[in-house]
Design a protein around this nucleic acid. Sequence first.
DNA 1: CGTTGGATCTTCT
DNA 2: GAAGATCCAACGC
Length: 207
Amino acid sequence: MILKPEFYHRKNVVQIAKDLLGKFLVTNHDGEYTSGMIVETEAYAGAIDKASHAFGNRRTARTEIMYGVGGKAYVYLCYGIHHLFNVVTNEAEIPHAVLIRAVEPVDGIDIMLHRRKKEKLAPALSAGPGALSEALAIYTKDTGLDLSEKSSLLYIEDRGIKIPKSQIVADTRVGVAYAKEDAYLPYRFYIKDNKYVSKGKGLKLPA
DNA sequence: CGTTGGATCTTCT
DNA sequence: GAAGATCCAACGC
């Protein structure tokens, strides 16, 4: 069943990041039905998180959607090339978000292979935030779509899979070294031993 | 294997 | 003008 708005409205963005593991991200653009199981996420704690685009309550046209109510998509362009998909959480005016970093392909694998210009199924198909967005055809124009609304053609659903706590690994986030001390926060979560977790490495804690 | 650099948009200096 | 929540092809060992 599709995740309800209440799932996203909760205040603990770290808990939501963990809860999203094992859920299914679905897109249905132009009648092409594709989905993947979420296997890797990162929490971004808004105004107090130096790694967040909304640190210090910074508002730009790009980040405005994060100041809206939770349960919407925040998609932005990274390095001018890659579309990164995030889930906005919490209440209005609190710019929390969860970055989806990797999914395991489930439905429409042939369509995803075609979009990624690949021949055979391999982790590179959807391991990594830019790769997964291309595989599922998620673009910046999808920012603002309601993830609780099936007709939005971009939504997240629960198919009854529960990831045991023992299978969830917490680690530092990838590519946020500029965030100084916040780069060491254990805000990245992934499913242990899953092949589709990205190869990205966060900073190691100082000795 | 590991490392390097190109692609080229948004935002801030 | 520079750097970033990235990816991958092209190199050198």
